[in-house]
Nucleic acid binder design. Sequence first.
DNA 1: TTGAAAGCGCTAACAG
DNA 2: CTGTTAGCGCTTTCAA
Lengths: 350, 350
Amino acid sequence: MQEKKKKATIKDVAARANTSITTVSRVLSGSDYPVKEELKTAIIDAAEALNYKPNLFGQLLRGGRNRQIGVVVPSITNPFYSQLIAAVQKECMDNDYVPILYSSHNQVQTERSCINMLIQAQVAGVLLSLIHWDESINSALDEAGIPYVLFDQPHDDYDGAAIDFDFYSSGRLAAEYLIENGHRELAFASGPMDRPSRKKLFEGFQDALTDHHMELKEDNIFVSTASKKSGASAMKDYQRGQELGSMVLERKRIPDALFTVNDMMAIGIMKQLETHQIHIPRDMSILGFDNVEFGEMIVPALTTISQSAYRTGELAAKLLMECLDGVHTWKKRVMLEPVLVERESIRKTQ
Amino acid sequence: MQEKKKKATIKDVAARANTSITTVSRVLSGSDYPVKEELKTAIIDAAEALNYKPNLFGQLLRGGRNRQIGVVVPSITNPFYSQLIAAVQKECMDNDYVPILYSSHNQVQTERSCINMLIQAQVAGVLLSLIHWDESINSALDEAGIPYVLFDQPHDDYDGAAIDFDFYSSGRLAAEYLIENGHRELAFASGPMDRPSRKKLFEGFQDALTDHHMELKEDNIFVSTASKKSGASAMKDYQRGQELGSMVLERKRIPDALFTVNDMMAIGIMKQLETHQIHIPRDMSILGFDNVEFGEMIVPALTTISQSAYRTGELAAKLLMECLDGVHTWKKRVMLEPVLVERESIRKTQ
DNA sequence: TTGAAAGCGCTAACAG
DNA sequence: CTGTTAGCGCTTTCAA
């Protein structure tokens, strides 16, 4: 690893081609400025010979647009987000952008500092899934002139560009599907109710029950308390599911069906019940949310409500690019609707 | 989104604090250069008032070291890599670096272009898991003065810094564990044998059998052919596992135990067998490889050989930082050893 | 069609 | 202790 050969600069290329740096710049940066064919090829040859690559920082300092785009998600190990990220990455690459990834671990403070780092890095735009949104983030980003689109978490007091998901309808859909399939005593299971998404899911679920003159009894609401340790890994949700599973087991009579706010938790619950000889769906039905790939791989395969991670990431990225390209779609919003994915974890007792 | 207020520069700060840009630079870049306490606070106040953030590109162009480090992995949706990435990310953040992630989808061509982009971006260092290694990558990186450490995939003709894993021993360990537990007819299942890791796994497995005077019969080697479509997602491996499962089912007599080259494939095989009423471990034992978190979540939980993704990522990042910090650990290598994780997918018939 | 020169924002060598 | 100045590599007036 000798570093003596300083990287070739535009100056070196100019010297080798017997011309000025101006002309080199014109040729190599692909402008349509007229340059004699002969000189042009000479410059290209020289550049090749010297293995010249324009220095990004020079261009950027000069005022060129950065091709990096920032992405903040709660976790990258959670399969929901890793799929989403995969979509974002593909979309970025297709447009010659490169994503810079941060995970916030669902910590408000980390969310803030990620955004600050992204601003400092002068990224072209940002994609955000934040637990907490406030005016100061808004203004910081605006001040830096960085377009952003929110996704995954809805915020009532936000009116910019976003990929929204209809959590409320999802909650309703969950309840209705369960009722349709003959379940009477319904339960709801969730981790901390600290995110807007979960609150809406709950509201919808409850409202649908009310509409059907059914009641969501207090002791059929299983909510695990926030843990001290931070983190938002798949393992975390799974373990939370196991806790939730234990809570269910403590009941003398288990509910007919359980709706869970995410698939990884549902899987944790299933595992816990299975190991205590409660078989799904024979003894209890369980309905997940997210439609993580993994839900399909377990036995019994998890019936769930799909919030397409891939589609969300794809659309969010596309929307941001539109903003970047000046198509004035600023503040555009897209609402994604839930789709029920039937598999094997719901007992049908019509 | 109005962009009229150009960002405050060092000049603005200097003006506001009635001093020179030099002094501002000295104060704000945290040098220990002596500046009168009074002026110092004035400058800090001014910077704060103007919400001044030093322009990264200016610093970088000037010769400052970039704080980005590049990471190339086959896939980010594969839980093995997403855990690994999580570790890398944590390690980077702790040292004020930020990782730039690329997924190569196991395509040699993509691997190349990722590395080129990283070089262009002048990252401080790179972490690589490559299917293919060759001298030209080596020299390109060296020429750019970018330190690198390889992980996950071993390459015989490589002698630089790396986090290695003992795949050969893992193969042996697999065979020996299976034999110990009373299994006689052993089988091996894998996707395309295009990676060094898989080849070594196979060699070790076979050698151990030979040592025990056992034979790995031709039709107990299940290898799925490379598919047209690229990609290296978890889903891909799972589906490959299902194919493999079907191949096993076609046999009139299924083997006693099956060793699989990664957990996601093992899970696919299990699912396929389960749905055809072959119960694991009652009818066949199955041993995975990787120790992905999901293995623990399924029923029955997957017994596997752990190649700690988190540890690998952590060590790779640490090693790279050491190189970056000039600790002359260049070319240092670390060899990680396999650990067997006993769960429920192996029948014990001593 | 070509080139000289300014300047993006920053740090460091040098001079007071 | 403080300030002036050069220059990192690049693009873009402006002038020839």
